[in-house]
Design a protein around this nucleic acid. Structure first.
Lengths: 148, 148
DNA sequence: CTAGTAAACGATAATTATTATCGTTCGTCA
DNA sequence: TGACGAACGATAATAATTATCGTTTACTAG
């Protein structure tokens, strides 16, 4: 298995170089497939698509590369994923700061966020219940620990 | 097993009545335990605490009641949970509308949200990477389907 | 206060999602 | 081209969640 040398390939190799990734055929197909999936696919859905072009690919490879891509900023996860459901009492209005490194969740008061989005007419007759804002970044502890 | 008739119990029964739930001992303890957990506990963590007061309780009961409480608005989930990881290409700035009924995710442009939160000094030296805003509500399709 | 009935419970099997392991193959660089 | 670490594929293992089902409980009417 080898990489072709088309224009698309060249730019994919650049993308990998920019993000410190080695360029493999699997990663290229995964990336190209993602470009054809405008929604918010799950790993299984991505796997199904990639499998059409690389029938021998392993689901584990898809998972590993999705995580790598997210880590390096090529992909992002749609809502923060904490491994398990997290709940809280539905009391006063507040939002969350989530550490993208250690996944720790801290409350933040709505007023500390500054100006809030105004409730407007939203597309498609969507009936708004509430906003949930995640401020994603690196917590103080992980900043000290340096580098991921 | 029976319910005591303390003041706390009376208000818990009211809470259940308000949310259309039958008042059971397990639910009362679950609710009281949640009041002592200010963070963002997982079902397992809640289970561990509840088990101290009701050693015979089943993990399944904790899951079932957490879901019920979330459904009826007594609890809320910290980040939307889609059953599996969801990813998207990290392209232009946008956020998401999430249907709390069918969990469908739709993109929404940042400008369509109205005013955005201003980046301010955040508590604890948290270094912000980005905001992720979920507009939670009921999508048009689920509004037609009426009532959950 | 007691019986009837639907809802809730507990135990546990089953399912889903994700991660770890490990022997083989590939990509990079000298 | 050859060495070596990274990535891959297969698959076992783990973690999280849900389904099933027989028993018990809460609510209502009498």
């Amino acid at each position: 298995m080898y990489l072709s040398s088309s224009v698309e390939t060249r730019s994919f190799r650049e993308l990998c170089a920019d993000h410190g990734l080695t360029a493999t055929h699997q990663r290229q197909v995964l990336y190209e497939v993602m470009q054809t999936m405008p929604g918010h696919p799950s790993p299984e859905e991505v796997y199904a698509r990639v499998k059409k072009r690389i029938p021998a690919i392993s689901l584990a490879t898809v998972y590993k590369n999705i995580h790598l891509f997210v880590e390096r900023g090529v992909l992002k996860e749609v809502s923060m994923h904490h491994g398990s459901l997290r709940v809280e009492l539905n009391s006063h209005l507040h939002h969350h700061m989530v550490c993208s490194h250690c996944k720790a969740i801290t409350d933040i008061e709505e007023k500390d966020l500054g100006v809030l989005p105004a409730l407007q007419r939203l597309p498609g007759g969507f009936q708004v219940e509430r906003y949930a804002i995640d401020v994603i970044g690196i917590c103080a502890a992980c900043q000290k620990t340096k580098r991921s």
